[in-house]
């Protein structure tokens, strides 16, 4: 198990954003984390990556308890993440952004080695043409890829992807999904928060569903998609429910 969550809960004042989230994640898998808006998915990432300290519960990463550790401790321990709302280092170049990821991530590379890794990773995510541009001048899709590149350059054991597909056009989505598969094939474990159901269903080995901070379902995409509780949770968000079911039907047709 690369990651174990035991009863992770998080309160913001009176609001219980997460309550008692518990699951294990084996190495090498892609775990899809889904749920309606405000379900607590990003908050869970923040609890795992050390941005927030969980109010209750434990986070165990690669056999070590890391509850309440600082984000930089988690980065050094081999965890990397992207942000739902992109956070480029605006006044640094694209390449420098990625070098930061490599220099301060798990491997703690020197500048020269990090530069090499940055060049490779940028090519991999298709940003090599823009490496000397200031990160602030990229468009949103490119910034998403930059987030991804920075995280990859750290060479993490566990990669947390927060809605990397949101706001991308269909062809970009296809490209990004390829990238995610590719990363997994290289042995990196991934947790992926996603609203684009079709993509997350097709790419994930397992899904965890959050609703109002509670974990309402867990299992393979097939099982989860047929879970009445999940359908109900999404019915609060009819659009999504509809899409979920349509995607589901389509994927059944094709099999």
């Amino acid at each position: 198990m690369i990651l174990q969550l035991e009863g992770v809960s998080k309160n913001f004042g009176g609001l219980r954003a997460l309550s008692d989230v518990t699951f294990d994640l084996p190495e090498g898998q892609i775990l899809g984390l889904i749920g309606p808006n405000g379900a607590g998915k990003t908050t869970l990432f923040n609890c795992i990556s050390g941005v927030y300290t969980p109010t209750e519960g434990r986070v165990i990463f690669r056999g070590q308890e890391v509850t309440g550790h600082k984000p930089y401790d988690m980065a050094k321990a081999g965890m990397a993440r992207t942000h739902q709302i992109v956070r480029p280092l605006n006044e640094l170049t694209v390449r420098e952004n990625v070098i930061v990821g490599s220099c301060f991530g798990r491997e703690g590379n020197g500048l020269t080695a990090a530069g090499r890794i940055a060049d490779e990773v940028l090519k991999f995510v298709g940003l090599d043409g823009r490496r000397d541009q200031l990160a602030g001048s990229l468009n949103v899709g490119q910034k998403k890829r930059l987030e991804m590149a920075r995280a990859l350059a750290a060479r993490p054991y566990l990669l947390l992807l927060d809605e990397v597909l949101a706001g991308l056009n269909p062809s970009e989505i296809g490209h990004m999904v390829e990238i995610v598969r590719n990363i997994r094939d290289q042995g990196v474990t991934i947790i992926m928060i996603e609203h684009v159901m079709k993509a997350v269903m097709s790419v994930s080995d397992r899904l965890v569903v959050l609703d109002y901070g509670r974990q309402i379902a867990e299992g393979t995409p097939q099982v989860v998609a047929n879970d009445p509780q999940v359908i109900e949770a999404y019915l609060g968000d009819p659009d999504l429910a509809l899409r979920l079911m349509r995607d589901q039907a389509r994927s059944q047709e094709s099999t």
Binding site: P71, R87, L89, E91, F104
Partner: peptide, 22 residues
């Protein structure tokens, strides 16, 4: 590298910490 870490802090301290800058 130390200086790069400082620049990262200047641009976005929280993001820098997530990337491993102490």
């Amino acid at each position: 590298k130390f200086g790069l870490g400082l620049l990262a802090i200047r641009e976005d301290e929280d993001a820098a910490e997530v990337m491993g800058v102490v």
